[in-house]
Computed example of a mutant assay.
Amino acid sequence: MSDFRLKVFYTVATRLIFIILALFCLTPWASPPLALALGIALAWLVGHPFPEHTQKGTHWLLQASVVGLGFGMNAQSALKAGEQGIVFTIISIVSTLILGWLLGRLMKIEKKTSYLISSGTAICGGSAIAAVSPVIRAEQKQISVALGVIFILNSIALILFPFIGHQFNMSQQEFGLWSAIAIHDTSSVVGAAAKYGDQALQVATTVKLARALWIIPVAFLSSFLFKSKEAKIKIPYFIGLFILAMLANSYIPAVQAISPFMVTIAKAGLTLTLFFIGCGLSKKTLTSVGVKPLIQGVALWIFISVMALWAVMEFA
C-alpha cells in the first residue's frame, strides 16, 4: 500500500472511529466521565480528526444543553439555591483573583496568562477566559496555555469530585453547591453533579449560571486593569434562555409535559460536549501548558476547592 493510500485509509478510519464514539455518547449507556475519557483516549491514540469543527460546535452545544436542563428545574427551588450560593460566590471569586495575582507575581508568570488562569478558576473556566481574553488583548499562546490548565483540571474534577462527595457523605444540596463553586467549567460542573444525583444537578446548574454572570463585572474590571477601554465585552445571553426555560417548566403545564424529553436531550448533548472537550486534550495541548502556569492553576484550584468544601459543610 502506497503512502498516499495509507494516509487516506488512516484519515477515513480516524473519522469513522470519531463518529462511532460521538454517536455512542448520545446513548443512555454513556456517562459524562466515560465520554470525557473516550475523547482523551482518541486524542492520544489516533488524534482529533475534526479539531476546528468541534471547537466551534462545543461552545454552542454546551449552551444549548444548559438551556435544555432548565426545562427540568423549578423556579422557586432554583431561587433558593441561588440565594444560598451568592455569598460563597462573591467571597470565592474575590479571594481567588487576589491569590492568583499574588501567585503570578511570586512565580513570575506572564501577567496576562496568570490573569486568565485566575479568571477561569474564579468564575467559569473556558467561558470566562473567552470573555476576558479580548478585553485584555491576550495573545493566542496566552489563551491556549490558560485553557490547557483549566481543561486538565476540569477533567480531573469530573471524576474526582463525586468520589470525594461520597467520602464526606455530602447531601445532594451540599455537593451541588460545592461543585458549582469549585469546578471551573459549566460542562464539568453539570457532568459531576449529574453523576451525583438529580437534586445536586439542579443546585449546581443554578448556582454555576448565577456565578457565570460575574463574567460581566470581572470583564469591566479587566478593561480597567489592562487599560483596554475599547474592547467589547461578551455577555452570556444563553443564561437568559435558561431562566426562560425554567420559568416555562415551573408555570406552564403544556411545557411540563415535554420537559422530561427536553432534559433527556440536554443530558445527551452535555455528554457529547464532554467527548468533544476530551478530544481537544492532546499531547500537544498538555505539553504547551508549562510547569509554572500549571502549578498556579493547581494551587488556585486546591484553594477554592478546600475553602468551598469547608464553607459548604459548615454553613450550608
Rank of each mutant, 00 (worst) to 15 (best):
C124F: 03
Y251R: 12
K267L: 13
F88N: 06
V312Y: 03
L270H: 07
S2G: 12
R105E: 00
A64E: 09
I304K: 05
L61Y: 04
W29L: 10
G126L: 01
E230R: 15
A268C: 11
L201C: 01
P28R: 03
F151G: 05
I164S: 10
L147N: 02
A204T: 00
A254W: 13
S127Y: 05
S31D: 06
K80M: 14
S288Q: 11
F224E: 06
M246Y: 08
E139R: 07
I98G: 02
V189Q: 04
A131V: 03
H166V: 09
A212G: 11
I216T: 08
A30Y: 01
Q202N: 12
F4K: 15
A204D: 04
V135Y: 03
H59T: 15
I295L: 13
I150Y: 03
V203S: 01
A78G: 15
Q296C: 09
V312G: 05
Q256I: 12
R105K: 14
F220I: 09
H166S: 09
A157W: 04
G148R: 03
K56A: 10
A22P: 00
L23R: 06
S31V: 02
C25R: 04
K7I: 00
G57R: 09
L272H: 08
F18Y: 09
G39E: 00
L61V: 09
V312T: 14
G240N: 12
G148Y: 08
V87Y: 06
L61W: 04
M246R: 04
V255H: 11
A204C: 09
C25W: 00
F50W: 14
A146R: 09
V306F: 13
Q142K: 11
L213G: 13
T264N: 15
S171T: 15
V312D: 04
F226C: 01
R105Q: 06
